[in-house]
């Protein structure tokens, strides 16, 4: 996509998190801050706490399954409609914030941005921001699958209510988050006091920046058959053969897409001076060139998986086999 097209696309921030984690407090904080920007806000829990904004859309989360033979390809039809409606007064706001209900799985929201052409043309998913409660998160992670999924999907995590826990508890909560998703940016907060610049306009779904800070970790190749949400990342140094990569990742997503929450990568294609950004949500994949490699930058390809039942050795061998012959 050209830079011009990217500039006219409205950034969309998805705000997820359990009921009581502080989503609405954060939202009101964002909206009341004097930043000179206007946001259209799509909410689902109107009444829990009022949202003070000119442009609030009350929506029912209406998820449907695409008739494309892919069982996990669920989409938010209400969002498609709302984005279409909002585009009729595009000049009245700078961005869209979508709040999801507490127990919502973020996948249908994210997949909507892959599936619908109008939504894709006119908006870009800026970041999935998950608000978690420092005090109650450990319990949530133990008793529900959705809590781990909301963390697994996140580009940005607001770790809220840090004043209610001890430094040791805070460190433990952060460790639990990192166990699930080592790639998200974590911000500590009390009553949602995160500067707007740390949450909105992150360009986080455009992964260049995220992957540039991928932590080095975990070299053991133990294959855990693990129902917990975990992540793995790989880096290879020889250029990638696009045909091999597409064949491998296509088959992998088709077979294991249900277990893979997020897949993100920056790839150095052979004979190409631009970086290729790849991303997927479950089986829905997308990719585009995102600007040239810097002259001083090693052209190494990185790929990250967040999901369940990740077979590290198999994934590593698969990715390594996508390189051009040495």
């Amino acid at each position: 996509m050209s830079d011009a097209a990217a500039n006219t696309q409205v950034p969309v921030t998805v705000l997820t998190g359990y009921l009581g984690a502080g989503k609405t407090t954060l939202l009101n904080r964002i909206l009341s801050e004097r930043h000179g920007r206007k946001y259209a806000v799509v909410i689902n829990e109107f009444g829990e706490l009022g949202v003070d904004n000119d442009l609030v859309v009350d929506s029912d989360e209406e998820v449907f399954e695409m008739n494309n033979g892919c069982v996990c390809c669920t989409v938010r039809g209400d969002l498609i409609r709302i984005v279409g409606g909002l585009m009729k007064r595009r000049d009245k706001f700078d961005g869209i914030i979508v709040e999801t209900t507490g127990l919502a799985n973020p996948a249908p929201v994210a997949q909507t941005f892959f599936v619908d052409e109008t939504v894709r043309e006119r908006t870009r998913l800026d970041a999935i921001v998950t608000v978690v409660d420092a005090k109650h998160l450990p319990q949530r992670l133990t008793d529900s699958a959705e809590a781990a999924e909301q963390i697994g999907f996140a580009d940005v995590i607001v770790l809220n209510k840090t004043d209610l826990v001890s430094p040791e508890e805070l460190a433990e909560v952060e460790r639990r988050i990192r166990e699930v998703n080592p790639f998200a940016t974590i911000h500590h907060a009390v009553r949602g006091n995160v500067p707007i610049g740390e949450v909105l306009d992150q360009g986080a779904f455009d992964l260049t920046r995220v992957l540039a800070h991928t932590p080095d970790f975990l070299t053991d190749d133990a294959h855990e058959h693990n129902e917990e949400v975990r992540s793995v990342s790989f880096e290879v140094s020889r250029p990638i053969d696009p045909e091999k990569f597409n064949a491998w990742i296509g088959a992998l997503l088709a077979q294991q897409g249900q277990d893979l929450l997020r897949t993100k990568g920056i790839l150095a294609y052979e004979g190409e001076d631009r970086r290729f950004a790849f991303q997927a949500v479950h089986m829905m994949a997308d990719g585009d060139f995102v600007g040239p490699w810097r002259a001083d930058e090693p052209r190494r390809s990185r790929l990250v998986f967040i999901g369940r039942n990740l077979n590290r050795p198999a994934l590593r061998r698969g990715f390594e086999a996508c390189q051009v012959a040495a």
């Binding site: 109107f46 609030v56 859309v57 009350d58 409609r81 409606g85």
Partner: peptide
Amino acid sequence: VTEIAAFGMKWVE
């Protein structure tokens, strides 16, 4: 302009 009905937050689509 005459209002026939008002539905609050919901859109008349």
